[in-house]
Write a protein that binds this DNA or RNA. Structure first.
Lengths: 152, 152
DNA sequence: ATATTTGCAAAACATTTGCACGGAA
DNA sequence: TTCCGTGCAAATGTTTTGCAAATAT
């Protein structure tokens, strides 16, 4: 792949920076480094890990700025917290829209996919039986990705 | 309701204590108080809140014991962590089996229901397209319960 | 020019651990 | 009697806050 062509991660990074700018945030070296580390990550990163990854690019960045940037990206719906069986395993870039996450417990990678109308029948059933009006949901899957199944 | 008849919460409490005993845990005053506070709660409680509630029954209980008891109950699948839009809102008794949670953002109550095979089509689709083998999932809903809708 | 953002240090908060005593089985 | 469980205190780990200096717009 020629290095003068933007790769997939470069596109994601530009998109994220655009979204931040559109929302009124300023684009700084710290945010660039954090966003870059995030989209380049092969798996969800927690704040500490993201901090360490961002420091490669921008050594003066502080952990606090990582927290603040994650907060902004969550607010904008660009990033999701990923839950493994034992709790939060980190944050992952999901992009805009209704995305779900499948997390491989073996390699730790997260697979992002569009949330189809999978849950509408469940939601209708809740509405009918409990009269509960569903506004949002958290759906995350854990298991084994194709490669990690093959590796067994 | 006659106080000599076990009420719904009393039955839940007995069940939880039995399950703890079956798993090899000893039944102590601290565990009794914590379990009682948990099943009597009208909404998910965090460790601090559960600690305060348990102290009504057993003032000598320590916060650490609450953490350790919650850990045991989670391990046994008797209790689930409840996630609101902004993060964890506490732990709720769910009983054995595959249960899902709908959390009302207005009154804070959690509604527990059986997990039907809602997700099997989604899981099959993941299997076909990504060859991802789903082993477990986290599904929680947020919205408004019937009473809180009426109250508007 | 000016309002946001940053990084530091410290505070606040949450959770876990070591250990001697107490209590369930 | 035996070993598990307890509560305390302290350690550890995580996230937030106040603030003066740096910087994007």
């Amino acid at each position: 792949m020629g290095r003068w062509l933007p790769n997939r991660e470069g596109l994601k990074m530009d998109f994220l920076l655009q979204e931040l700018r559109r929302a009124g945030y300023r684009i700084t070296d710290a945010r660039r480094a954090i966003v870059q580390a995030l989209v380049n990550a092969s798996r969800p990163l927690n704040p500490q890990e993201l901090y360490e990854a961002a420091r490669v690019q921008h050594p003066r960045v502080g952990l606090v700025t990582v927290y603040r940037t994650l907060e902004a990206l969550l607010e904008l719906g660009m990033v999701q917290k990923v839950h493994g069986e034992q709790g939060c395993v980190g944050y992952v870039y999901t992009g805009r829209g209704h995305r779900h996450v499948a997390w491989c417990r073996a390699c730790g990678r997260a697979f992002i996919f569009e949330g189809q109308e999978d849950l509408s029948s469940l939601e209708q059933s809740l509405e009918r039986t409990l009269h509960f009006r569903v506004e949002g949901h958290l759906l995350q899957l854990t298991g084994l990705c194709a490669e990690c199944q093959a590796r067994t």
